[in-house]
Design a binder for these strands. Sequence first.
DNA 1: GCGCGTCTGGGACAGTTGTCCCACTTCGGG
DNA 2: CCCGAAGTGGGACAACTGTCCCAGACGCGC
Lengths: 219, 219
Amino acid sequence: MRVSAEQRRRELAAAALRVVVRDGVAAATIRAIVAEAGMKLASFHYAYRSRDEVLREVVRLVVEGERETTAAALAEAAAPPASGRADEAGGPELLAALTRRTLGAYLASVHADPGREQGMLELTFTALRTPELEGVAAEQYAQYRGLVAEILAAGAELAGMRWTAPLEELARAIVAISDGLTVAALVDPDADLEPVLDLLVPALVARAEPALTAERIPG
Amino acid sequence: MRVSAEQRRRELAAAALRVVVRDGVAAATIRAIVAEAGMKLASFHYAYRSRDEVLREVVRLVVEGERETTAAALAEAAAPPASGRADEAGGPELLAALTRRTLGAYLASVHADPGREQGMLELTFTALRTPELEGVAAEQYAQYRGLVAEILAAGAELAGMRWTAPLEELARAIVAISDGLTVAALVDPDADLEPVLDLLVPALVARAEPALTAERIPG
DNA sequence: GCGCGTCTGGGACAGTTGTCCCACTTCGGG
DNA sequence: CCCGAAGTGGGACAACTGTCCCAGACGCGC
């Protein structure tokens, strides 16, 4: 079977991601990657120049994946409104519920597939230690913050609220909180992190106030 | 020069820690460790059975180090009271300042020596992936939480406050926050994390109330 | 139909790794 | 003083790594 180099690149990157998630970055050798992809060793250097290059691609792949997950999450968050929302629940309470639910969903995904987020953090650390991957980690996290900012904006709109702190600032805080929760969930999968969410979510929502909608301005 | 096996174990563990901090866990090969310690390769297997065994020892070493750092931090936190404290500043404000200062000091240490905390996280992740190191990560974080709980108790006492949430719960949250801030500082060393602290510290202090001291009970 | 460039297969290479071994040195107690 | 045990030195080993090479097979455009 003959496949284009571009197709091969994608398959190899996907295989590399699977290996990283399952066995960790350290185990993601070129041989392990091509085996996962069901290819021959030589095919690798036909598609990529080096191991670092695949890892860079993997990070890109992951960020893209998060983007899709985010989009899905946003759609889902917008779904349950049918049961009546903006009028029934107050803005702040709704925003808190949304924030809470989103963070909770993320945490559930970590519990469901711990290797995934651990692999991501391992990738980040590898990038930080590898000169050839300079800037990859920073870029990865900039993307994360951008995604979170989108979610924040969407959530506020949904709840009829307005953030009183810069979105980038809030996004940075949430990304940090997510990473912290991730490590906590990885190290101690049985721990109940709900109280931690209860502690942190209000701090976030405290940075929002009811938005003045067009309907309410006339008063 | 002839040294005892015990001495050699300590020196090797210390050398291993230096390598992990400077070059990462992946670079901490047996040869790199003995080179760092200025020993011969054979000396290693005379002191340790395997690489995993040193890593386990390194984690223990690190936790001990954190314990000392913590003790020093507690002493320092107790120092500035000479300028008048409990009476001058309100309990909640003081507790907030203490919390803020402690987290800030930790963050400063990450900026001062990024490799150290990255190395610690790498060690944790390695432990999570290595069957021979099962339980090491959980133990490491249990110790962390214990240390933080001590700091919390001391801080509350200093400020004449009382925590209204279980100490273990608060400690878990703070450890998670610290990890999140660590990753943020590692990935983007130039970022200003002060606003994030401003956001999170009040959430913690909100779980404290003025303690009823003996002097105030009579009323 | 066919030639040429694209892609594949298998192997080879040097470097590095963890582990082990055996001859040697050095010390401490008799 | 001297012998046995504790500690040291240097090297060897197989396994594994990233990288590279070259002969061959395939498919597409002419």
